[in-house]
Simulated assay, not measured.
Amino acid sequence: MAMFAAFLTPEYAPFAIAFVVMIGIGLIEGVGLGLGHLDLDAEVGGDAEGGGLLDWLGLGGELPILIWLTSLLGCFTLSGLAIQQGATAFFGGPLHWGLAVGGATLIGVILNTFTANGLARIMPGYESTVISSDDLLRQRGRILDGAARRGHPARAKVVDHHGQAHFIMVEPHDDGGVIAHGQTALIVRREGSIFYALPDADALLQSI
């Protein structure tokens, strides 16, 4: 009860909040809402220095971001409690919450580096079925609505190699081309949100 009462004091409040947030994130990850993994490579743009920092923090591998964040909050909370308990034992009372938060942040980040890297080694590999728009190139799609003409794209359905369906807007690759409703076509290039395709009836594709 004494520890619970201490959690309600201002000196311990940041760590109590971190603990509650950690539990909430753990529940979100536990029920599998699909929010645990982010494409961090896209955020750093392949920068070597950024990638090295992410690796050091334990974010460069396949560890889901919510698990990493839960681990960080846990390390922060434990570090804060240890600091305040140590201060109470040595000085007769806890430190000001600002000083404790600063120390707990530094220690928590260092501890979480080892914790996150350890978790990344023991967790099963993460397989993502998320693909980029350019991965739809060289795939075949079927025109669903009307006919596709230059300047008048039509909606098409493309099934990727994971078996997932994607619905895109398609125009013929050739200026005078037409891709009829229900016809299949090979996606050959993309400009913005518009994909350009050669119909399978095109003479260029007869041997493909």
Rank of each mutant, 00 (worst) to 15 (best):
M1Q: 05
F4Q: 05
A5S: 05
A6E: 11
A6Q: 13
P10L: 06
P10Q: 04
E11S: 12
Y12P: 01
P14I: 12
A16V: 01
V20N: 08
V21Q: 03
M22V: 07
G24K: 07
G26D: 04
L27I: 13
L27W: 10
L27T: 09
I28K: 04
V31H: 06
V31E: 06
L35Q: 15
L35N: 05
L35R: 07
L35M: 12
L38Q: 07
L40E: 01
A42N: 10
V44G: 08
G45P: 02
A48P: 09
E49D: 05
G50N: 06
G50L: 12
G52V: 06
L54K: 09
L54T: 02
G58Q: 13
L59F: 15
G61F: 10
E62V: 10
L66W: 09
T77E: 11
S79H: 14
I83Y: 12
Q85S: 05
A87V: 04
T88L: 11
G92P: 06
G92F: 11
P94F: 05
P94E: 10
L99P: 02
L99G: 05
G102A: 09
G102H: 05
G103C: 03
L106P: 00
L106G: 15
I110D: 06
T115F: 10
E127V: 15
S128M: 08
S133K: 14
D134Y: 03
D135G: 00
L136D: 14
R138D: 12
R138W: 08
Q139C: 03
R140F: 06
G141N: 01
R142E: 15
I143S: 03
G146D: 08
G146V: 02
A147P: 03
R149G: 08
R150M: 02
R150V: 02
P153G: 02
A154F: 04
A156C: 15
D160C: 12
H166Y: 14
I168F: 12
V170L: 01
E171C: 01
E171K: 01
H173Y: 15
D174A: 14
D174M: 13
G176I: 03
H181R: 12
G182F: 00
A185S: 12
I187Y: 05
V188T: 14
R189H: 07
G192R: 13
Y196L: 00
A197Y: 00
L198G: 00
L198W: 03
P199F: 09
A203S: 15
A203Q: 15
L205N: 00
S207G: 06
